[in-house]
């Protein structure tokens, strides 16, 4: 997984509370065999005027010009600023997959739904919790200034504005460690490769039949 350390980027404001995972990525896209390809259907119902389906050519679909991500000034945004209880609803891991593929590695909100919050870390994304009044302030600044950027400094645990103002956030030490080092569950387990190999060579003695080749 790509390590997450200091990320600077354009901010897109999604001024809406209780955004559920069905809104993030509607259920018809879950039939896919892929972990990728969801970015084009992120916020599908908000983003397009017609109803989307799996395998469609999204470039031909009519876009909703009012939706924030369709506005020219937010193209290339990598930080999503939003409201309380983001990511509620079903447990689909497709929600963080879609956000990440679209380009959002960071979501800032006053609170997140639990499963979504967990799923973000599995996918190298950072959900940042900031107090309600600070989120308000960021919304105001973002809407007022075109090209508004923020820097998220994970090692220092602060969100920094371009004029140097800093807002501290908290994060579980273990998760921070995994993100900074780019460790997913697999990466973490692989840190124990030597222990696994050692176990395996012992098992090859005590239960050799488990390791027989399946090939003729």
């Amino acid at each position: 997984m790509k390590p997450y350390t200091v990320e600077q980027g354009l901010v897109a404001p999604l001024d809406r509370a209780n955004v559920d995972t069905d809104l993030i990525i509607p259920k018809q896209f879950l039939k896919s065999i892929k972990r990728t390809g969801f970015g084009a259907n992120l916020f599908d119902e908000l983003r397009y005027l017609d109803e989307g389906y799996l395998g469609q050519d999204n470039s031909k679909r009519p876009k909703n010009p009012d939706f924030v991500l369709n506005q020219p000034r937010y193209q290339g945004a990598s930080i999503l600023l939003t409201r309380a209880n983001f990511g509620c609803g079903s447990s689909r891991e497709h929600a963080p997959w879609a956000l990440e593929e679209y380009g959002f590695r960071t979501v800032i909100a006053p609170s997140f739904a639990d499963i979504f919050f967990n799923n973000c870390f599995k996918n190298g994304m950072l959900p940042v919790i900031l107090p309600e009044d600070i989120v308000d302030q960021l919304f105001n600044e973002c809407q007022a200034q075109e090209g508004y950027q923020l820097t998220v400094d994970l090692p220092a645990q602060v969100v920094r504005t371009s004029n140097g103002q800093e807002f501290a956030f908290s994060i579980d030490e273990f998760r921070k460690h995994c993100l900074i080092n780019g460790l997913d569950d697999i990466g973490l387990t692989l840190q124990d490769s030597a222990v696994i190999s050692e176990f395996e060579s012992k098992a090859q003695q005590s239960r050799p039949w488990v390791f027989n080749s399946l090939r003729p």
């Binding site: 891991e93 599995k122 569950d185 697999i186 387990t189 692989l190 696994i196 395996e200």
Partner: peptide, 13 residues
Amino acid sequence: SEVEHVLATQCLI
């Protein structure tokens, strides 16, 4: 995710 984990590490958490 666990299928992938087992493929890659031969272990399950």
